[in-house]
Structures are given as C-alpha cells and as structure tokens.
Design a binder for these strands. Structure first.
Lengths: 248, 248
DNA sequence: ATTAACTGTTTATAGAATACGCAGATGCGA
DNA sequence: TCGCATCTGCGTATTCTATAAACAGTTAAT
C-alpha cells in the first residue's frame, strides 16, 4: 500500500542520474523540479504543490516532470529531504546533552517556520543526503558517548520523533489562543467529558491550578519539559550501559 | 492553511447533533458514515476512502455526506477517533512503568494492525471521546504518581508520539527484509554516503557489529529500547519532582 | 394551512494525477 | 556519414477527485 518506492528513488535522492548517453541533454533537472516545489509549498502551502503548478514554475509541461520523477509521492519524498537542507549550523562546542537539545530544538523551529513540513507524508523512508547530514550532526554530539551505533541511531530517531510531535503542538498553539493553549482542551472537557467516563483524567485535572500571575513559567521554551525528560532517559541509559558494559 | 476546523467538529466528534426540530428524520448518521469509511480504509487502504465510495457504501449520493460532515478533512478526523475505539483493554494491575509501557505498546500494535492509521493527517486536534478514553487510561496508570496534571498530559503525549514513530519503523520493517531491517540503511551508506560528508556517522557505524548467531536480542520487542529510555526519563523526572516539590 | 427548516439528490465545475504515443534531438556503432 | 537506439519533452485524453449550487420532498412549529 502506498508504495512510492521505486528502484530509482535512492539514486535520485543522492543526485546520481544514471548518466544516460544518448538523447538530448535534459533541460530539466531533478534539483530544479524539487526546488520549484519547495518554493510553491513555502509560499502557498503543500496543498498548492501540484504537478501542473510545479511544471508551470519550471516552465515545462506537466508530463515532462515524469521523466525525472516517478510520481508525485516521490517528488514529496525528495521535497522532504530538500527541506532538511534548511536546518541551521549549530554550536559545535556543546556537550551531548546541550548539543542534542539544540539539535532537537532546531528541528522544531524549522517545522514551525515551515509548517507545511507537517503536512508531508512522513514515511520512514531512507534518509536522503540532507537528512543524513543532520543525523550525522546528532552523532557528532554523541561522539564521546560510549554506545553502540544502533543505539545512537535509535536515540537520534527518538529525539527527532519527539521534535515532530512538539512541532505539531507548537504550530497548533500558534493558531489558537496565544494566552492559554490549554483553554480549548479544558473547555472541551467541561463541556463534553463525562466524569464517569474519564474518571482518572478528570480527577487529575481537578487539581489543576493555572499558573498565577505571580509565577512565571520556568522556561519560555515549551519543549523544555519533554527535552528534560528525554535527556534524563538517555543519561540513565548511558549510565546503565557503562555499569555492565565493557569497563575499558 | 488546511483549516479543517469547523465550529461543529467538536460536537460531531462527541455525537451531539444540534437536534434540529424540523425536517425529515435523517436516514444517515455521522456514525454510519464514519463506520463505512473505516471499513473501506481497512479493506483497501486510506487512499480508497473517497467521498464517492463512502457514499456508495452507506447507500446514498456523494453529496448527502456533506449534510453530516463538513468536508473530507473532517471525516478523516472523525475516522481517526473511531480508530481509537479499537484500542484494547489492558491489565489494570500494573504499576505506572509497566502500565505505561503496555499502553504505549498497544498503540504501536494497533498501528501495525491498521497501517493506514499512519497515512491519516495527524493534526494535533482536540481528541475525541475514544482517544480521550485512551488518554484517561494513561492517567490511570499515572494515578499514584505525584505530578501535576499538565505534566502528566505532556508525558502521555510524549509516549504516544513515540508510539507513532515506532509504529512507522515497524510497519516499514514489515515491508522490507525481515531478517535485517537495517540492511538497506547500511547498503545505502556504503553505496552513496561519502565518509567525508558524514564523518561522525561513519565513524560510529564502523564499530557496528551485527548480532552474531550466538547472541540473541535481549528482547523480541523492538520498542524495548525506546521504551526503557522513556520510562527512565519519566522516573528521573518524578524523582526530581519529589525532591524539591511539596513534600507532604 | 402556511411556512421555515431540514434532508437527500441532481447537476455541474474545476482540478487532480497520470497512461499513452509522438516528434525531435542526440550520440554510438557501423 | 548513415542509420538507429535512446532519450527528452509535449499534447492529448482518461479517470478521479472534492465540492458548489439549486432543487424537491418531508417534517414540525406557528
């Protein structure tokens, strides 16, 4: 189902054309097409990215695109990797904890800046070069952490996954009441939720005390909580690993 | 952009029709429509869920659906909540750690069973009744944990978000080589990845030793690693909270 | 009885992805 | 240099898609 995978996807991701000999030199390139899609998504949202509009942007007929891209799904995969090129440079003088936190935060910021990223079908396809470079940066911050590579990969994946969720929350929050993002949630609870149907939730929520005017939030970064949770988990794992792992 | 939110979405999620007085009694119901969409998605994938096909399934004209549902986006939101009704009952005699782990695992299993769930546009909309009941179960397992409700909500959200990522990985793994899901990743690295461009990743991967035949995986649950990481993080947070929180 | 409100239908429109076949360009082998 | 295989881009056409708009029948309030 939904198999956008073609045997040429990965080469295309890496910009390796089969280098055909014969035939006219292509006037179009995959990079050009992806870039046009990127601009359209940026200006008008992902829904505006249609083959016809992309073709118009690069100045060719819609069907010409199919010579360079298997189908629209594949174009979107390429687009997702293109977006990863927008991830920023980060301070290299950070420990794994601060480094990974900044690494995570940068992903959230990117998604907030380009919310159409969240509309992309995020299949767990193989990463393209840009995304892989970002993963490499994650490994950089973990370079002095003594863990096997598959565990590092898992950690990096978990942190990135958390970034997606956090980005969703922040994007939605930006669209709703900036004062209290939980307002609608609470409103929904009191309006519809039967306390007998959701006893545990309601019982806990009953103790909820909205932050008074005197006390401020401990951090202005809404991802601070989850960030701390993840880093604490990683740290605990490292320590556990050191204990019973190879001591030398 | 992409604002599927209508003022009637939430009432519809909760099955509260405005109870119009006049006019003929509706032959269709929202539940009926959503159920039809559910069956189609289940049998033919989410891409097969079109207004026309849903209409055919319930035996009405396509446009009749729009009397009960604002548009297709809204139908998909309702569908997502409907899917949450398939989440299983869980053992109530578990501590927060095992309970939350089982709670997480159940979500992964559901997504693996119904992979079209991952194709749904997972906006961070307000949860419907079924999803809220699931959240309530998460709060059940956290009932004896002394944390404020907003932190519990954040924890539950983080764990659920992890479940989505894990489900993506497992679904994709099921479609690829069952022996070694990392095979294509490694293959991609050696084929395309320039060591100078991804030095940290490559350096770490160089130490990669695939699990030999003698040693088995510690767990047959591929989510065990992330699970442990999350639970350790939560535990650390609880302890930190107890230390400086109100002791009584 | 009148009327307002509500339901489902019919028709129509605009846009989507993409299969198929053609015309011209290009470079390889002869 | 002459074919010829191969490749690019284009034009056409098909099939689906969501959904706007107007309409006809049905019910309950007045």
């Amino acid at each position: 189902m939904m198999d956008a995978m073609s045997s040429d996807l990965i080469p295309r991701l890496w910009g390796k054309a089969p280098a055909g000999r014969r035939g006219p030199k292509p006037a179009l390139s995959v990079a050009q097409i992806v870039e046009a899609a990127y601009v359209i998504a940026d200006e008008q949202g992902l829904a505006a990215v249609s083959m016809a509009r992309v073709a118009e942007a690069v100045g060719c007929s819609p069907m010409a695109l199919y010579r360079h891209v298997k189908n629209k799904d594949e174009l979107l995969i390429l687009l997702a990797d293109r977006l990863c090129a927008d991830l920023p440079e980060l301070d290299r003088d950070l420990g794994w904890r601060e480094g990974l936190a900044a690494w995570m935060r940068a992903q959230v910021d990117l998604a907030v800046r380009k919310p159409w990223f969240l509309d992309l079908p995020l299949a767990a396809t193989l990463p393209g070069p840009n995304r892989l470079a970002w993963i490499d940066l994650g490994f950089y911050y973990l370079r002095e952490v003594a863990l096997p590579p598959d565990e590092k990969l898992a950690i990096v994946g978990i942190v990135a996954q958390y970034a997606v969720g956090e980005a969703r929350i922040e994007v939605e929050a930006a669209l709703s009441d900036p004062d209290n993002p939980y307002a609608s949630f609470e409103q929904m609870l009191v309006t519809y939720a039967d306390p007998e149907r959701f006893p545990n939730l309601m019982a806990s929520m009953a103790t909820w005390r909205p932050a008074g005017p005197g006390e401020e939030l401990e951090s202005d970064d809404p991802s601070a909580f989850g960030q701390g949770l993840l880093m604490a988990g990683i740290e605990a794992h490292i320590e556990r690993h050191l204990e019973r792992g190879t001591p030398k």
